[in-house]
Design a protein around this nucleic acid. Structure first.
Lengths: 170, 170
DNA sequence: GGCAGCTCCTTGAAACTTGAACAAGTCGGG
DNA sequence: CCCGACTTGTTCAAGTTTCAAGGAGCTGCC
């Protein structure tokens, strides 16, 4: 819409037409994909995508357990949100809480056998969905480029990633 | 984690390590970016990103108005969600509903002057946030690649885009 | 005209998310 | 040992999203 220098908008540079196109495509695609996966998982696994991600995080952790804060960091959500989510997953019987012996404030979220089973049963469908929506449509070069781009973007938004003991989110 | 043919998972091909890396980078980056923009807009404009998008959609429409269904399609959300959202924006005084004269079922969502003013005031900050998080970090080639990739992905998930009168979402 | 089948949009309840506030526990310095 | 500063995880209230249901109007066909 705006590509020439516009005096009225001089100081905060607008997006060029091309940038605009890219940005809208980005919004469009990420929205559709997230919706698609959320729906797929809600249907096949009975939980939203982010909850599924929590189970995966636990499944990959040693002894299938993680401290709440660690799990929150890995899923990139707030502790508050995680508390609610784990409460729900606990109600499903897929996760169980355990006290941390070395820090009485601490809690472990532990993947139950049932939870593991749900994952085992639903992971293939989810992977297929991701594959169909994304990888099957992109050339190897595009896949590579996408990975690089996303790493750059993430790196710019993460306060640390390798660096710090700063407030880890927000 | 799995790249060799695994007999137990033979039929539903897993993700290769490289695909896995790309996929995680994608999730990581899109989550962080969406959170970042949501927070930025909540702080500066008092509304989440999607609501801001609704105002933009209206601002760009002829006479700053759109039928509910059209707006929902453009924002890629359900009509139900839009109803709630417009109710909230109406409460803010940024949008007003108007009856459609030619179809008594229909409603227009109309951007008010106040709404337009909010947009005028907050758009620069938002654009800057997008620019800083995305465009400033990517080479021109990467921007181009990103645009192409996102168009492909979106195209694959949209039932129509150019084609149809089919269920437009889902 | 009348009626079945659609579309338009809204509603209400339940689920989920957010941000602030909080109790409890840890930790380091005096 | 004690205190202030910080961390951990939860809770509350307010806001948002989803899903299923429904009222109302349009449309075409008999």
């Amino acid at each position: 819409m705006n590509t020439a220098p516009d005096p009225a908008a001089a100081q905060h540079r607008w997006l060029t037409d091309e940038e605009q196109r890219v940005w809208r495509a980005y919004l469009h695609a990420t929205t559709l994909l997230e919706d698609h996966l959320d729906r797929q998982l809600q249907r096949d696994a009975g939980m939203p995508h982010i909850y599924y991600g929590l189970l995966v995080g636990l499944a990959e952790a040693p002894r299938r357990r993680l401290r709440m804060t660690e799990l929150a960091m890995q899923a990139k959500i707030t502790r508050s949100r995680l508390s609610h989510a784990i409460a729900r997953l606990e109600k499903n019987g897929w996760v169980r809480r355990e006290d941390c012996p070395s820090d009485k404030r601490g809690q472990f979220a532990v993947l139950t056998d049932e939870g593991h089973e749900v994952l085992r049963r639903t992971a293939p469908g989810h992977v297929t969905a991701v594959r169909q929506a994304l990888f099957e449509r992109l050339s190897p070069e595009q896949q590579k480029a996408l990975g690089e781009i996303m790493e750059i973007v993430a790196e710019g938004l993460q306060p640390d990633e390798a660096g710090a003991d700063l407030p880890w989110l927000r």
